[in-house]
Simulated assay, not measured.
Amino acid sequence: MRPIPWGQMNDSSASRINGCCGVVGSALVRAALDDIRERHLKALVSCPYILGWMRKHPEYRELLFNAPPSKVRD
């Protein structure tokens, strides 16, 4: 399976990727990103599964290495 760039990810490619990884993949991504957040790091993501997962979970997008700074304030 070749990588799918962020801008080219769509519902059919995300479904294809989710079908092979499912619940276990989702749990691993969430745990890894939670760890990255706790360490105040950024993620340089090239995995199409993780990119597709992050499209469905925007609360993790600020962890992307090239993401713009969050505008959310307390």
Score class of each variant (00 low, 15 high):
residue 26 S to H: 01
residue 20 C to A: 09
residue 49 Y to A: 06
residue 15 S to C: 00
residue 48 P to F: 06
residue 72 V to S: 13
residue 6 W to N: 06
residue 42 K to H: 08
residue 68 P to Q: 04
residue 42 K to T: 04
residue 34 D to H: 08
residue 23 V to C: 00
residue 32 A to T: 12
residue 56 K to V: 06
residue 10 N to I: 03
residue 15 S to T: 05
residue 37 R to L: 04
residue 13 S to C: 05
residue 26 S to P: 00
residue 73 R to E: 12
residue 34 D to A: 07
residue 60 Y to T: 13
residue 6 W to V: 08
residue 40 H to A: 14
residue 43 A to F: 05
residue 1 M to H: 10
residue 66 N to G: 00
residue 69 P to E: 10
residue 56 K to Y: 09
residue 25 G to V: 04
residue 49 Y to S: 05
residue 12 S to F: 10
residue 33 L to K: 04
residue 5 P to M: 13
residue 19 G to E: 09
residue 13 S to L: 05
residue 5 P to C: 13
residue 43 A to W: 04
residue 65 F to K: 10
residue 38 E to K: 15
residue 2 R to D: 11
residue 9 M to F: 02
residue 28 L to R: 05
residue 18 N to V: 00
residue 64 L to V: 03
residue 13 S to W: 06
residue 74 D to I: 08
residue 59 E to M: 11
residue 38 E to Y: 02
residue 9 M to N: 08
residue 29 V to E: 00
residue 67 A to R: 08
residue 26 S to V: 00
residue 10 N to R: 08
residue 36 I to D: 02
residue 46 S to M: 12
residue 55 R to T: 11
residue 48 P to E: 07
residue 36 I to C: 15
residue 37 R to K: 15
residue 68 P to N: 02
residue 73 R to V: 12
residue 38 E to R: 15
residue 25 G to P: 01
residue 26 S to I: 00
residue 37 R to D: 12
residue 45 V to N: 09
residue 49 Y to H: 12
residue 25 G to I: 03
residue 44 L to K: 15
residue 28 L to D: 00
residue 30 R to N: 06
residue 5 P to I: 13
residue 22 G to R: 09
residue 48 P to T: 15
residue 40 H to E: 14
residue 36 I to R: 05
residue 59 E to W: 07
residue 72 V to P: 00
residue 56 K to P: 01
residue 72 V to Y: 11
residue 43 A to R: 07
residue 41 L to K: 10
residue 42 K to I: 01
residue 58 P to W: 13
residue 28 L to T: 01
residue 39 R to Y: 03
residue 25 G to D: 00
residue 59 E to F: 07
residue 25 G to F: 02
residue 58 P to R: 14
residue 27 A to T: 07
residue 22 G to A: 07
residue 30 R to F: 02
residue 20 C to R: 11
residue 7 G to V: 06
residue 12 S to M: 10
residue 68 P to Y: 03
residue 55 R to E: 14
residue 73 R to Y: 10
residue 53 W to N: 05
residue 32 A to D: 06
residue 16 R to T: 13
residue 30 R to L: 06
residue 69 P to S: 10
residue 38 E to G: 07
residue 33 L to T: 02
residue 38 E to H: 08
residue 27 A to G: 03
residue 3 P to Q: 08
residue 37 R to G: 02
residue 33 L to E: 02
residue 64 L to W: 03
residue 33 L to C: 04
residue 28 L to P: 00
residue 49 Y to N: 05
residue 8 Q to G: 03
residue 31 A to F: 03
residue 28 L to A: 04
residue 61 R to T: 15
residue 67 A to F: 04
residue 45 V to W: 06
residue 25 G to R: 05
residue 6 W to G: 01
residue 67 A to I: 03
residue 51 L to Y: 02
residue 41 L to S: 07
residue 10 N to M: 05
residue 17 I to Q: 08
residue 47 C to T: 10
residue 3 P to W: 03
residue 63 L to Y: 08
residue 46 S to C: 13
residue 57 H to R: 11
residue 18 N to P: 00
residue 32 A to E: 05
residue 24 V to S: 07
residue 6 W to R: 14
residue 52 G to K: 04
residue 14 A to V: 07
residue 18 N to D: 04
residue 74 D to Y: 11
residue 42 K to P: 01
